[in-house]
């Protein structure tokens, strides 16, 4: 749930797979936060260059956009681990334990399927940009495969965390929907 400061992570127990995935997701979260901080710094630098030094600011806007996109995509697994993606748990809450369990499995499998689709075509898109040597149409001319890389990485890691969450429910380390 999207509480503010309560970071209730999904449980890992002592399962090495779950712990490894949790560690990777946490690392991804650090990278995501780092990119947001970098975006703050670059924007402030841009304002100083433009307003104080009256200089040109050619690359900053683009860099900041790509950093925020990358922060979002790479941050996905970490937020999933913290159960930070909002959901509507009205029906799961009202279900008895057994159906709730199956509901959790069903939503997990659906989530995994769609994220796998995003990963597959995200990778394809990234590869296309790499293969064709696409650049952005600005003076800076970023090679687009660099920002597009966030698609396969972000969705790949999210897929991993979703699988870990499913495994945790299946082996009983975690409760369906995290509900007690």
């Amino acid at each position: 749930m999207a509480g503010h400061s309560s970071a209730v992570a999904s449980h890992t127990g002592n399962n090495p797979f779950l712990r490894a995935v949790a560690a990777i997701s946490t690392l991804a979260g650090w990278c995501s936060a780092g990119m947001i901080v970098a975006a703050v710094a670059i924007t402030c630098q841009m304002i100083v260059v433009r307003f104080v030094l009256n200089g040109s600011t050619v690359w900053q806007t683009e860099a900041v956009i790509y950093l925020v996109i990358a922060a979002t995509l790479v941050g996905l697994p970490y937020v999933q681990r913290l159960r930070g993606h909002v959901n509507v748990d009205l029906i799961p809450l009202s279900l008895p334990a057994k159906p709730r369990f199956f509901m959790a499995i069903l939503t997990s499998v659906l989530s995994i399927a769609i994220v796998a689709v995003m990963l597959f075509y995200g990778y394809e898109y990234w590869h296309f940009a790499w293969d064709r040597g696409w650049r952005s149409d600005t003076v800076w001319g970023v090679r687009l495969w660099i920002p597009y890389l966030a698609l396969p990485i972000g969705f790949g890691l999210l897929l991993l965390q979703l699988i870990a969450d499913l495994v945790a429910v299946l082996i009983g380390v975690d409760k369906p929907f995290g509900l007690e």
């Binding site: 979260g29 995501s32 922060a71 993606h85």
Partner: peptide, 12 residues
């Protein structure tokens, strides 16, 4: 962490 969590949730 809190900012990243809320931002990523919204941006996603």
């Amino acid at each position: 962490r809190d900012s990243t969590k809320e931002s990523v949730m919204i941006l996603f």
